Computed example of a mutant assay.
Amino acid sequence: MQNRSHAVMAQRTEAADSPDDFPTPPWATRGFMEHVLAEFGPFKKLSCLEPACGAGHMAKVLKEYFREVRSSDAYKYGYGSVRNYLDVPYEANAVDWVITNPPFRLAEDFVQRSLIVAREGVAVLVRTVFIESVGRYRNLFETTPPAICAQYAERVPMVKGRLDRKASTATGYAWLVWKKSGSRSTRLMWIPPCRKDLERDRDYPPNR
């Protein structure tokens, strides 16, 4: 008999024309900055681009760390500029870092574009299964491996179209980080349980 529990069924499977709007809980972005990207800081003099910003949940946290955060999205959410990252490219070396939770089906294209746009590094939040696939290995990982693969030790619940503090998920997420200079090998690490320490009441709309 099929297990239809919410945690098992809450998978990110979207149509090809979907905005794929699954906001990143702010605590998860802080966890990445504190436990993964911190070794490349400080960032107070650096710039960052979030090119799939949605309603700004990740970009607002990045502003806690970076001097400047540019935000855009292909769809209108009322935050950042409306700009299709793949159709209307930014200039080469436009910012120090590109950090984003891209539409899953476009994540490989986002990485390739971001490696041109960023001066120092690129970081994408993806489903852990993104590191699978022969095609993705041939097109990306074989020639341009990330410097870091950082897996969340605790689950990061993402709900379509909104933040939900009470949500659960069966989907695992990891950050892939590319540095424009340095080793061409990939280091595996874990983001330790950190939601309790990094979650803020102000992160959520009222009654969430």
Rank of each mutant, 00 (worst) to 15 (best):
M1D: 10
M1W: 01
Q2I: 10
Q2Y: 00
S5F: 06
S5K: 06
H6R: 15
H6W: 12
M9R: 15
R12M: 15
T13W: 09
T13E: 14
D17K: 07
D17H: 08
D17F: 01
S18K: 03
D20R: 06
D21I: 02
D21Y: 13
P25R: 02
P26T: 00
W27A: 00
R30C: 03
R30T: 04
G31L: 04
M33F: 04
V36Y: 07
L37S: 09
L37I: 06
P42V: 03
P42R: 02
P42A: 04
P42C: 03
F43T: 06
F43Y: 12
S47L: 06
S47P: 02
L49T: 01
A52K: 02
C53F: 02
G54M: 10
A55R: 10
G56E: 04
A59F: 00
A59S: 13
V61T: 08
L62K: 02
K63V: 00
E64D: 12
Y65A: 00
V69N: 03
S71L: 02
S72M: 14
S72W: 03
K76F: 13
G78D: 14
G80T: 12
G80F: 08
R83W: 07
N84C: 11
V88C: 13
E91Q: 13
N93R: 07
V95T: 01
D96L: 04
D96P: 02
D96H: 02
W97I: 07
V98S: 09
I99P: 00
P102G: 01
P103N: 01
F104M: 05
R105S: 04
L106D: 07
Q112V: 14
R113M: 13
S114Q: 05
L115S: 09
V117N: 11
V117T: 15
R119F: 13
E120V: 09
E120I: 10
V122W: 12
V124I: 15
V129E: 14
V129K: 10
I131F: 03
I131M: 13
V134G: 09
G135A: 06
N139P: 04
F141S: 09
E142K: 13
T143F: 03
T144D: 11
A147Q: 05
A147T: 14
C149Y: 02
C149E: 09
A150S: 00
Y152F: 15
E154K: 00
V156K: 07
P157V: 02
M158S: 03
G161N: 11
R162M: 12
R162Q: 14
L163Q: 04
L163S: 05
K166S: 15
T169F: 01
T169Q: 06
W175L: 09
W178M: 10
W178C: 11
K179I: 13
K180G: 08
S181C: 09
G182F: 07
T186W: 08
R187I: 15
M189K: 14
I191M: 12
I191A: 10
P193W: 06
R195D: 04
D197R: 13
D197M: 12
D197P: 05
D197T: 10
E199C: 07
E199H: 04
D203A: 11
D203N: 12
R208N: 15
